[in-house]
C-alpha cells in the first residue's frame, strides 16, 4: 500500500453508502478548476453510459416491445398489448418457477453469505499458511462450470453417487436427488454455494483489510472479545460491502440458470425435473424461447423476472441497511 494509507485511515471512520458526498466547495479556484469540477463526473461515467446505452439498454427496450406482441420465433408479431402479462399472472407453471427460484435462493444464499463472512474473518487473522488458505478460496471460481456440473452430477448420482453412499452409513435409503423438490433444491444449493462462497469470502476480505486497525486496538484496550469486535466493528464497517453482496446474490440467485439446467443433464432439461421440481424463472424463459418458440411470452417472463428482482432486492436492501445501525 501507499504510505498515505495509515494516514488516511486515521482521519476517521469511512463514510457509509448512503452518506452524501461532500458539498462542493465554493468555486474559489480558477476557471480550469471549475470546469474540472463540473465536467469530470460526466466524463467519468460517460464510457459506461455510451456502451451501456447501445449494447445493453437498447436490447432491453426491444425486449419490452417484443413482450407486447404475440411473436413466434422468426415470424411476424401481432400486437396484443398487455395480453401476455395477464396470461402470465394466471400461468401456474410460471408461479411454480417463481416459487422454486425464491426457495433455492433462500436455501443457497443465507448459508453462502454467512459462511463467506465467517471464512473472511478467519482469513483476516494471523494464521499459519494464510496465503495458501486465501488461494484456495478462489479455486472454485476458476473451475469451469461444465466441470462443476459433471462432478456434482456424479456426487448426486442416484445409484452410485458419493452423497448417497455417505448417507447410506446412517441407514438412509438411496435418494433420487432429482425427483423431489427438497432433495433437488438442496443439491442445487450446494452446487451454487460451492462455487460462490469463496468469491464472497474474497470480497469481504478485501473490505475487511481496509478497516482501520486502531478501532480494534482501542476496543481491545476496552476489553472487547473477538466476537464482540466482529459484531460491533467488523460487521458495521462492512455494511456497504454486505449490502453489495446481498444485492448481487439476489440478482444472481433470482437469475439462477446454469446449475439447475446442468443438474438434469440429458434431454428436455429446460423443464427442471419431471414435475418442474427445480425449474427456475430463467429456465422457464428459455423453455418458452427455445422449446415453445414463443418469443413474445419469453420476453414477458423476462420482464416479470426483472420486476421480481427489483422487489426482492429492495426488500433485502431495507433489511441489510439495518445491519450495524440498529446495534
Amino acid at each position: 500500500m501507499t504510505p498515505n494509507t495509515a494516514d488516511r485511515t486515521r482521519r476517521g471512520r469511512p463514510a457509509h453508502s448512503h452518506a452524501q458526498p461532500p458539498p462542493p466547495r465554493k468555486a474559489r479556484g480558477t476557471f480550469g478548476t471549475r470546469l474540472d469540477m463540473k465536467t469530470s463526473p460526466y466524463l467519468y461515467v460517460a464510457p459506461f453510459f455510451v456502451i451501456f446505452l447501445i449494447f445493453q439498454l437498447y436490447p432491453l427496450v426491444y425486449t419490452f416491445w417484443v413482450s407486447l406482441h404475440n411473436q413466434p420465433l422468426g415470424g411476424e408479431g401481432e400486437f396484443v398489448g398487455a395480453d401476455n402479462f395477464t396470461a402470465l399472472m394466471k400461468d401456474e407453471q410460471f408461479w411454480n418457477s417463481v416459487y422454486n427460484t425464491l426457495g433455492i435462493f433462500v436455501v443457497s444464499t443465507v448459508p453462502q453469505l454467512l459462511i463467506g463472512l465467517y471464512l473472511a474473518n478467519a482469513l483476516n487473522r494471523k494464521l499459519r499458511g494464510r496465503g495458501f488458505f486465501r488461494m484456495t478460496m478462489a479455486v472454485p471460481i476458476i473451475t469451469s462450470t461444465a466441470a462443476v456440473a459433471i462432478i456434482f452430477g456424479q456426487i448426486y448420482n442416484r445409484d452410485f453417487g458419493i452423497a448417497n453412499w455417505v448417507l447410506g452409513w446412517f441407514g438412509v435409503e438411496n435418494i433420487d436427488w432429482r425427483a423431489t423438490k427438497w432433495a433437488s433444491w438442496i443439491a442445487i444449493s450446494t452446487m451454487v454455494d460451492w462455487r460462490w462462497t469463496g468469491y464472497n469470502t474474497l470480497i469481504y476480505l478485501a473490505s475487511m483489510q481496509s478497516i482501520p486497525k486502531d478501532l480494534y486496538e482501542s476496543a481491545a484496550l476496552d476489553g472487547a472479545s473477538a466476537r464482540r469486535q466482529f459484531w460491533q466493528i467488523t460487521v458495521p464497517m462492512l455494511r456497504p460491502t454486505i449490502i453489495f453482496t446481498v444485492i448481487i446474490s439476489t440478482i444472481g440467485g433470482l437469475q439462477l440458470f446454469a446449475e439447475p439446467l446442468m443438474f438434469s443433464s440429458g434431454s428436455g432439461n429446460y423443464t427442471g425435473g419431471t414435475l418442474r421440481q427445480y425449474q427456475t424463472v430463467t429456465m422457464y424463459l428459455f423453455e418458452n424461447m427455445f422449446t415453445r418458440f414463443n418469443l413474445g411470452y419469453a420476453a414477458t417472463v423476462a420482464w416479470a423476472l426483472f420486476l421480481l428482482i427489483v422487489i426482492v432486492a429492495f426488500i433485502n436492501y431495507l433489511l441489510t441497511r439495518r445491519i450495524g445501525s440498529a446495534k
Binding site: F52, L57, P59, F257, L285, A302, F306, V310
Partner: peptide, 15 residues
Amino acid sequence: ILATMMVPVQLGLIP
C-alpha cells in the same frame, strides 16, 4: 445502473 443488473441478459441476445 442498478436496474440494468436486474434484467436477465439472455433475452437481449437476438437484438
